[in-house]
Design a protein around this nucleic acid. Structure first.
Lengths: 166, 166
DNA sequence: TTGGAAAGTCAACAACGCTGACATACCTTT
DNA sequence: AAAGGTATGTCAGCGTTGTTGACTTTCCAA
């Protein structure tokens, strides 16, 4: 396993022990990452699935159900249940497509935008604190590793979103 | 909180847009992070909860159910269901405590160790590839940001595990 | 006009959270 | 030693959100 030609430094990161620590860091950090929105949503009839739908509808207003399915990676039956409750409660509006009337273009209502803001404010606050504590260089590394960890198709989704936002 | 002495660079990272990208990076990366073990476990009667139990029992052999509860952050009833199936299937052995007969000390059997290895090999392979692609400096930043993102109590758990492994 | 894509419904099921009720073991107090 | 409270773990049942399968309706395009 030891490669005498490589700089010791770079190989040190690839011990099973280092990798295990990275795995556990992902596990614990993701718990923190979702903790604040989870707290806000508990008590409402909503959960993480609703949060995700709200996030990506806010992110790409007018997106179709199909688009959302691709991004979220769930079945339409599962997403449909979530969307139905959001629409019934007046957080999301589904507009029938002009060109293609089969499509439903999804938008947040004012009420939906309000909840989105509450959720993302909480999540951004934690992210901001973590970024500040770690510093700019750490943030760049954080993003690099996360991107490398994605499945190639998911990475395209992510990068597509990244650009469409600019 | 604005610190006029900080370099402009560090503040640039704190735009809502940057934070949103970080949030979505966590979302997509976590999907990748769990994808390989999920694939291995589908078809067995097991899921992510079983994976987590197996991971931490392997990590700390002889740990009690209570310890595991604290680390995993679920109810004992939920964990119990998972442990019961693992014990029935001969992957985990629960030994009654000597001093305190209420306690169950958990160990992986050979069969359990085999599955643990299969799962963690897959997860480590992805982690290793991501680490290699991003480089040592990025990895350090990755770990710093993740650690800063944890809840304080979870961070203690994480750090405790880190040390006990050394 | 026929074929297929998009959207949605209904039904059933699995994984994994949760609460409540309970049994057993231990410890402290009397 | 007996009594009561705390800690540990088990069993039963429920809710959310994921899954598959079968089906209908609507519409565009060949």
């Amino acid at each position: 396993m030891a490669d005498p030609t490589a700089s010791g430094e770079s190989l040190l990161f690839l011990t099973d022990e280092q990798l295990r620590k990275g795995i556990e860091a992902m596990f614990f950090a993701y718990r923190g990452f979702t903790a604040d929105p989870d707290r806000i949503l508990e008590g409402m009839d909503y959960g993480r699935a609703h949060h995700r739908a709200i996030h990506f509808i806010h992110r790409s207003p007018g997106t179709t159900v199909s688009n959302l399915l691709t991004i979220l990676g769930v079945t339409k039956q599962s997403l449909n249940r979530v969307l139905r409750s959001l629409i019934e409660d007046g957080l999301v509006e589904a507009r029938i497509g002009r060109r293609d009337k089969r499509e439903r273009h999804l938008h947040l209502t004012q009420k939906g935008e309000a909840l989105e803001r509450e959720l993302s404010d909480a999540q951004r606050a934690r992210m901001r604190a973590a970024y500040r504590a770690a510093g700019p260089q750490a943030v760049a590394g954080f993003r690099q590793v996360l991107e490398a960890m994605m499945d190639p198709e998911l990475r395209k989704q992510y990068q597509g979103l990244k650009e469409s936002g600019a």
